[in-house]
């Protein structure tokens, strides 16, 4: 379970999150929607521990563990996974090396045995097949020369390998055509189960047709201003954020 209470954060001295309260029970998928500049990506970065995002108040616990006190790698070991809106290219770092290093770092942190190259390849190929990814993408530099859709699939592949407890998907739908969107959504849906929660951050309702959330929250001006069932996303699509702003 993810429990966020009174979370405030600033970037370059400018307050962005102004008291976020949010609970995602274990096994549930929640969507965070909101207009540009409302603090959606900031929330994602604060939860995953990126430098430059200063927490000024509040708490964020994952299964009772204080996320905000941990280094980014410790949060990953505790089960947090951020699917980046703009996955980073790492020229000179082979994708296979990267994936195996990440997988083994997490396994090591959990006290599990590390995978050798053969075990890893077998697992990676299996997961890649499910995401319609070409084996050749293992040989290239991380995200180097990948199309937008390939980069997002590579994010979902990492999620599938690392098996997080909480996935934060930051605008994973941006830049995807409908086929890629379905593949990505299938990848997320395949993870769903009692030990997996997700925060799906999106600007549009479209993604939520494929990843149907248990709850939808609207983030505006650095606070959650409304929460509801999946139907809230449809309402937003029809009426826009203006109506909520007026009501809030």
């Amino acid at each position: 379970m993810l429990e966020i209470k009174g979370l405030t954060a600033e970037v370059d001295g400018k307050p962005i999150l102004k008291g976020v309260d949010l609970i995602v029970p274990q096994g549930e998928v929640h969507a965070i929607m909101g207009p540009n500049g409302s603090g959606k990506s900031t929330l994602a970065y604060v939860l995953s521990g990126r430098d430059g995002y200063e927490v000024t108040g509040g708490t964020a616990l994952l299964h009772g563990q204080d996320l905000l006190a941990m280094e980014p790698e410790e949060r990953a070991a505790a089960g947090v996974f951020l699917a980046f809106q703009y996955p980073v290219e790492l020229p000179g770092v082979g994708n296979a090396t990267f994936l195996r290093t990440a997988l083994n770092a997490i396994r090591r942190a959990k006290g599990e045995s590390e995978f050798d190259a053969m075990q890893f390849l077998k697992l990676a190929r299996e997961r890649m097949k499910a995401l319609s990814m070409n084996d050749e993408m293992l040989k290239r530099g991380v995200n180097v020369g990948f199309s937008g859709g390939e980069k997002k699939r590579n994010e979902i592949l990492q999620m599938a390998l690392l098996q997080p407890k909480l996935a934060i998907l930051d605008e994973t739908d941006s830049g995807l055509d409908i086929d890629a969107l379905k593949i990505v959504a299938d990848g997320v849906n395949a993870m769903r189960g009692p030990d997996f929660s997700a925060l799906v951050i999106t600007h549009y309702q479209r993604l939520l047709d494929y990843i149907v959330p248990d709850r939808v929250h609207v983030l505006m001006g650095g606070r959650i201003v409304r929460s509801g069932g999946p139907e809230l996303a449809k309402e937003l699509e029809a009426q826009g954020y203006g109506a909520i702003q007026a009501a809030a």
Binding site: A76, V88, A105, I106, A109, L162
Partner: peptide, 15 residues
């Protein structure tokens, strides 16, 4: 590159 470093650390790779 700070972004690259964060990307790796967010995947569990120690700093």
């Amino acid at each position: 590159d700070a972004d690259s470093l964060f990307y790796l650390r967010s995947r569990g790779v120690p700093a």
